[in-house]
Design a protein around this nucleic acid. Structure first.
Lengths: 342, 342
DNA sequence: ATCTGATGTGTAATCAATTACATGTTTTTC
DNA sequence: GAAAAACATGTAATTGATTACACATCAGAT
């Protein structure tokens, strides 16, 4: 395979000139230019980015570390990141952690070796703050943290305002007349799910509804926990008339189980989700939910990263994206007959 | 940042010895080992994989080129690839082509520069064979082609047996008594959609049903084309009693539109999809479809690739995966009242 | 006592680029 | 017409590893 010296020799110039030509840095005469172009063509020359990276100390690679592409929440984020990264000629390296510590650590060390120019991390649900801080302490490259705010110098953060989103959802349900509103939360000690619990509680509070702890259960963001949580909720002495699930997958699980139990949504039970994944508009009844702008999340985090790569000492930014309540069919005004039950 | 020479100096040995230690190649004495370990620790040394790659001529990176992660068919494939690649310490670089030629070409040249160790390509719908062959002609690294069979030396191929899958789907519908079976095919000149058309036609043929070209329309694999195709089909002089869509997204579009038109699925119209994406089991009625083992597709393609990286001249393999008919609710035995219409 | 093979380590070339510096040639400017 | 500025190119060091080769030591075999 031809290298820059072969090209230089064939064109009758020095490698330095060829390099200048390729990178359009410095002067290269018109005749020389064509000679080099021809030589490159003839030898089928492609610059070796490894050598270039070694010399210039920039790999033009950004890494994106996510829990699992297979979770419908992430592909859009990935797409957002890719779109802005590739527009600036960065290549995207993707890692799935699955929330396993072993994997996390493995990826971490690989990342340090690879000399990526920057990393966007969406910490997996089970990773504690301590681990993240360790990660950041060793930082050898800019890091953007998604959905996890940490006070650390030169680490930009971006997240959806989960508190606000949950508040809006619960507010909506309250506004529809519901007073027994269950919440299927995400895992404990995960920032996003804790924020959502708080937002839910705040809305209830503002409507003068006491928060009943028996109505708050914790799931793991999968369809199955939504599905599995409904029975016990409905068997409560005072069953809820509405369920606010901390993500759409769990909300869909609730709807599925409700159908099996003969509970009509939204007539007997209002259901509200969070995320607005594509399924949300497909399921029947279509899901009232809170939309996170995942694509924008991806785009913005990539922009933050590229900015910091270009300008390592620019001021830290902490972005909070406003979520949006999307009203669809799955949550309706509370029905008299349902209220009448108690 | 410390390099191998710094470590060597600190440990009082030569860089060669440190290198041997890191790669466990060659002999390194016990005392030397601990000294090196300590020096690495003290200097917080991380090997530079760029330099290593430059020297050894292997990047430990594999690229995966797909049309769009956002299409629910792909994340599972990505996951399959990642799982086997990362197990062998390869890193995954992801590219979305969107089927745009400009992007395709761009990615192509980037790929050549990056000196990836191999590439898995799922050619986008609009890319012609000529372009693929161009791509292959310039090959500088092993390539595995997914869902596109091309007779090219040293290019392994893997695909689902789309013909068989479509045959099974159509056979199933025929077996349920349907005789007017529409097919919403994928784009023309895309191998997978053409194969599915053939399988559909073959099944009808085997049941003695002539293929009516007015019942075969072409979509672009999005929900919207499924949605948009139904009206004209149902307005045909002899409307179909069943629709076989070439993928689940289009099938779901059909179900959505059917609901709006007051056409009951499966009572008035049987619907069958292809792919078995996760939505398929969520929609209501749940979708009868043909499952492709996408995770396995990803895994196997990565395995093919790694095998060829390790052994460039091993014999070419062309794998065809058997799809599976998944019977759910959306396709039922043809109803008398529906048949009675004609 | 000598030879052989295993063990352990260093020297220096190499991978393919970039770039500071030097040097020479034009062109512009006053 | 001389000085300054712009243009054009080459030389050689540098980036951070790996590895062929050479050399030294030491144990066990003959």
């Amino acid at each position: 395979m031809a290298n820059i010296h072969d090209v230089a020799a064939k064109a009758g110039v020095s490698a330095a000139t060829v390099s200048r030509f390729i990178n359009s840095s410095g002067y290269v005469g018109a005749k020389t230019r064509t000679k080099i172009r021809e030589a490159m063509e003839a030898l089928d020359y492609v610059p070796n980015s490894m050598a270039r990276s070694l010399r210039t100390n920039e790999s033009m690679i950004v890494a994106l570390v996510i829990p699992d592409v297979t979770n419908p929440f992430f592909p859009t984020v990935v797409r957002g990141v890719d779109d802005v990264a590739s527009k600036s000629d960065y290549r995207l390296m993707l890692f799935n952690t699955d929330g396993s510590k072993r994997r996390e650590e493995n990826i971490l060390s690989v990342l340090a070796q690879t000399r990526v120019d920057g990393v966007i991390v969406i910490p997996s649900e089970t990773v504690g703050d301590a681990q993240i801080t360790d990660f950041l302490e060793q930082q050898r490259f800019p890091i953007v943290l998604v959905d996890r705010v940490i006070d650390f110098p030169q680490v930009d953060c971006i997240m959806t305002d989960h508190y606000l989103g949950a508040y809006q959802a619960a507010q909506h349900l309250c506004g529809l007349g519901h007073r027994r509103i269950a919440h299927i939360a995400g895992p404990r000690r995960v920032v996003s799910s804790e924020e959502r619990v708080k937002g839910y509680a705040a809305a209830l509070n503002d409507f003068g509804i006491p928060v009943d702890q028996s109505l708050v259960v914790h799931g793991d963001f999968t369809r199955y926990t939504g599905y599995g949580s409904l029975d016990s909720l409905m068997n409560l002495p005072e069953a809820p008339t509405a369920v606010f699930a901390a993500n759409d997958l769990m909300a869909i699980g609730v709807i599925e189980r409700a159908r099996e139990l003969g509970i009509k949504v939204p007539e007997d039970l209002a259901v509200c989700g969070f995320d607005d994944i594509e399924y949300a508009s497909i399921v029947s009844p279509s899901l009232t939910t809170v939309s996170q702008e995942t694509y924008r999340l991806g785009k913005l985090s990539a922009q933050l990263l590229l900015r910091r790569i270009a300008e390592p000492d620019c001021e830290v930014r902490r972005i909070k994206l406003k979520p949006n309540l999307i009203v669809r069919e799955s949550a309706a005004r509370v029905y008299q007959h349902t209220l009448g039950r108690w």
